[in-house]
């Protein structure tokens, strides 16, 4: 990462945010654990025992991280991510997120095809016929591999139902 790129989020802010997130996670674990007995009876620790203390330790360690963040990172101007870096990550992550949502709705095969073709055309700069052929080939290969050879059904959507494949 070169230094002349502008900082978008500072390391300090991100340390605090992550520390808070794990703190919340710890609280959630403790809340889940106290639905059960958290004590120790003649049969040893009860079901909630370990999760309860695991949650408490997460809370304590998160507080530790927050404290350290104030000590170590508050004054430092270190960037967590720069504008340019963030843009690059998003250029990758957003299509991925779209692929996940699309696959959830349309099934993994349709999702795969659209995602591969889309990324190749819009980000890779390939021509339409080539991109469609590659995406179609890979999707088809996956279909044969999973459905026919290994008999592991992947998520299907309305299109497969329409075609009567599954």
């Amino acid at each position: 990462m070169s230094t002349n790129e502008r900082s978008l989020v500072s390391r300090f802010a991100m340390e605090i945010a992550t520390g808070c997130a794990t703190l919340v996670a710890g609280i959630v674990v403790v809340l889940g654990a106290i639905e059960y007995e958290t004590g120790w009876d003649e049969g040893g620790p009860q079901p909630g025992y370990f999760p309860f203390y695991v949650g408490l330790i997460i809370i304590a360690a998160s507080l530790g991280v927050l404290g350290q963040a104030f000590l170590n990172h508050r004054r430092s101007r270190e960037a967590f991510v720069t504008r340019e870096g963030f843009a690059r990550v998003m250029a990758f992550f957003l299509p991925l997120a779209a692929f996940t949502v699309g696959s959830y709705v349309l099934g993994l095969y349709v999702g795969t095809f659209v995602y591969l073709a889309g990324v190749m055309i819009f980000q890779g700069g390939y021509r339409w016929p080539f991109a469609l052929a590659v995406a179609g080939g890979i999707t088809g290969f996956f279909f044969v591999l999973f459905e026919r050879w290994f008999q592991v059904p992947l998520l299907k959507g309305p299109l497969e139902a329409l075609l009567g494949i599954y």
């Binding site: 991925l96 996940t100 993994l108 995602y115 190749m120 890779g124 390939y126 590659v134 890979i138 992947l154």
Partner: peptide
């Protein structure tokens, strides 16, 4: 531009 997305697809399908 081809292999990156393919790896992702393998990751996601694999997770499924």
């Amino acid at each position: 531009a081809i292999i990156g997305p393919v790896i992702l697809v393998i990751c996601v399908s694999g997770a499924y």
